[in-house]
Amino acid sequence: MILDIAPEAERIARLAKSDARAALDACQDAAERLACAGPHLLPTLHEQTGRVFLAVGKPTYAARMFTLARAAETEHGLTVDEERLEAVCLELTLGGALTAKALSAYARELTARVPAAEALERFTRLCVRRTAGGLAPSRPLGSALRALARAAGRHPGRAEQDYLAALLPRDPAAAAEVWNSPRTPSPSPYEREASPCTESR
């Protein structure tokens, strides 16, 4: 039985260089064995395989690995290290594997694991770091942010203002793009009246 995933991860990496499908099959085989011998290692196996797929230009496969890692956590009742997961999420996002839709799903899953206020704080930070990493703001992420704000008992417009306040020092052009969206006239982000805004990808 597999208890150390390093040899399997190395074998998967070698396969991925020439045959991504074979690497995917190898990961699935290893995961089936780990499900019995050490299910707590499944998220790490899937995430490492996701990095391998990113390295060989297979972002769709990498995204699938992220989804499988989260499914393993749910299926086996594993404790989630939110700090580590946020870092993995950002890494795969900046690598081109996780779309805005996938991040919106991550936001919904956050609310099932942590208090609503913490989920809002974590997701806002992730969105800011995503934009700081070079990715443009995205409309689905704005919708997810507003949903988290409502769940936390905060006005969605105020939560967006907090997001923009964090974004402005890092990327003024991106923040202006968010605020100047044509969906609805809005005041300056420096004004304290709450107002909705749209993020365009």
Rank of each mutant, 00 (worst) to 15 (best):
I5E: 00
P7F: 08
E8T: 11
K17G: 05
D19C: 13
A20G: 05
R21T: 15
A22L: 14
L24V: 12
D25R: 13
Q28E: 15
D29K: 08
A30M: 01
L34E: 01
A35V: 13
G38P: 08
P39D: 15
P43D: 15
H46M: 15
H46N: 09
Q48R: 12
A55Y: 06
K58I: 14
T60E: 06
T60M: 04
Y61H: 10
A62H: 02
A72L: 12
E73H: 04
T74V: 14
L78A: 09
L78Y: 08
E82C: 04
R84C: 10
L85P: 05
L85M: 00
C89L: 08
C89T: 08
G95D: 01
G96K: 01
L98K: 02
L103W: 06
A105Q: 00
E109V: 03
T111D: 15
R113T: 12
L126Q: 11
L126T: 10
V128T: 09
R129I: 01
R129Y: 11
A132M: 05
S138M: 02
S138N: 14
R139E: 13
R139H: 13
P140W: 04
S143M: 04
A144I: 05
A152T: 01
R154C: 05
G157H: 10
Q161I: 10
Q161A: 12
A165V: 05
A165I: 05
A165C: 08
A165L: 09
A166K: 03
L168R: 15
P169Y: 03
A173V: 13
A175F: 04
A176K: 14
A176D: 11
R183N: 10
P185E: 15
S186G: 09
S188K: 04
P189R: 15
Y190M: 07
E193V: 15
S195N: 07
